[in-house]
Design a protein around this nucleic acid. Structure first.
Lengths: 138, 138
DNA sequence: ATTTGTGCAAATCGTTTGCATCTGA
DNA sequence: TCAGATGCAAACGATTTGCACAAAT
């Protein structure tokens, strides 16, 4: 699902964000190669490795702006770091306890049944399924 | 599901934790009245309100010890605070985006189907379902 | 008596913010 | 030109930790 720079430009513009050098570079890293989930620090390291000059603060700001714009979603995982996911639709993660490791898995075929109605005054925004795993033999 | 002090004492002992005044009081608050989920600060305030003398640091330490002992579970929710749940079995939460509000709901009747096999070297520890909600009309 | 827990304050760490400088439209 | 972005460093808030004191076995 490779995206052209022009495409990314439009996506940013549609989100009301100026397509600056930094934002485009980060968007390219994020959306250039399939679904991914990253922490701010991950992305910052990646950007530096790709010779993109960005400060960590800008990475944080950009991730938050992308999230507000609906381009990213925060992953519901406990732990000290915040992870962002480029897949904004409902989906699922394996979470390896003790290691803090997070593994995507495709949500096709997953169904959750028997859910109660949403409380008054709220609308369904999405459903996350976290499959917690324990390393074997520990 | 009221528990006696003796019961709590035994639970702590079985977990390898000395039943100290503070731990017993916190355990009483946590397990004394059905399933609940609290943050460290919540519990600290509650303890103070109940005239239990504990420091916030001890509340943190105690919650972590309880978690390690399997008496509590950390709730998989994004956000700045960590929540602990006295219900250590699989279950579900409503999470109201924007408000950070967390609502338990009973997991009876909930089923998740179509899950892939667990990755090699890991065993299933549990499944969390987070139903994300958006305040209506926002 | 010895080992383990507690309180306090200082240290940590991820994340956010204020402000001066730069850049895209 | 000029609103909006960026970088840096300082600020922040939740959580952890080091150490002297207190309590449990």
């Amino acid at each position: 699902m490779q995206e052209s720079l022009d495409n990314l430009c439009d996506r940013l513009r549609n989100a009301g964000l100026r397509p600056t050098r930094q934002r485009l570079s980060l968007a390219e890293l994020l959306f250039g190669s399939g679904d991914r989930h990253v922490s701010a620090e991950d992305l910052h390291k990646e950007a530096l490795a790709a010779r993109v000059k960005v400060s960590l603060a800008t990475v944080y700001n950009t991730l938050n702006q992308f999230r507000e714009a609906g381009l990213l979603r925060e992953v519901a995982i406990e732990g000290d770091r915040t992870y962002f996911d480029t897949n904004t639709s409902n989906h699922c993660h394996f979470y390896v306890e003790g290691e803090g490791r997070l593994i995507d898995f495709p949500s096709e075929g997953i169904a959750v049944t028997g859910l109660p109605a949403t409380p008054a005054g709220t609308a369904l925004a999405g459903i996350d399924v976290i499959v917690r795993l324990r390393p074997k033999g520990v």
